[in-house]
Amino acid sequence: MKAAVVVFPASNCDRDAATALEYVTGNRTRMLWHKDSEIPADIDLIVLPGGFSYGDYLRCGAMAAQSPIMRTVVERARAGTPVAGICNGFQILAECGLLPGGFLRNAGLKFVNKPTPVRVETSQTIFTNKFEAGEVVSFPVANGEGNYFADDETLKRLEGEGRIAFRYQDNPNGSINDIAGILNEAGNVLGVMPHPERHVEPIHFCQDGRRFFESLAAAVG
């Protein structure tokens, strides 16, 4: 697997995503700059990391979605390259139209960081094949605007097409239908609000996030 992590101004989980990828897969991760419009052809996984891209100004992810690299990310995603957006990365994927829906402020109106139980809804994806469907694992949330929202029609499609990847067991931010992570129609783009990359090493709360990256390594090769 040749993974790349995109760095936007005020991304702040870029290093975390890269070190988790390297820790789990042993492969070196490339960092891509938001102003670049090229993504090397051999990159076979693109990660949009957490953080506060462009200071969350305008709307979380809205400005990053307009950056030069995102045009290329969208092209590559449509051509089938796996793309994972974590936290702010999920917001960017929603803003650029690769995933449906959007985000509101947390229902509690406060930033929240804590380990959160999430249920893996399907193991039939490139992101979750090392989990069991129905299994409850722990990833930490760390967001202020993680309250996922979509209209009824969209929700019906997401639910009906098996595109809910993760669901909160103890909804920390008010997300509709307890949604913590969703897939695009083709199944190669995933947005996940909690941070699998923070539950990887022995010093972390647990190592459930390791299998997220192992799944990708298994699927991508």
Binding site: D16, A20, N113, H195
Partner: peptide, 8 residues
């Protein structure tokens, strides 16, 4: 309300 786990 503080991110206490970023930086891993």
């Amino acid at each position: 309300q503080y991110d206490s786990t970023v930086m891993n």
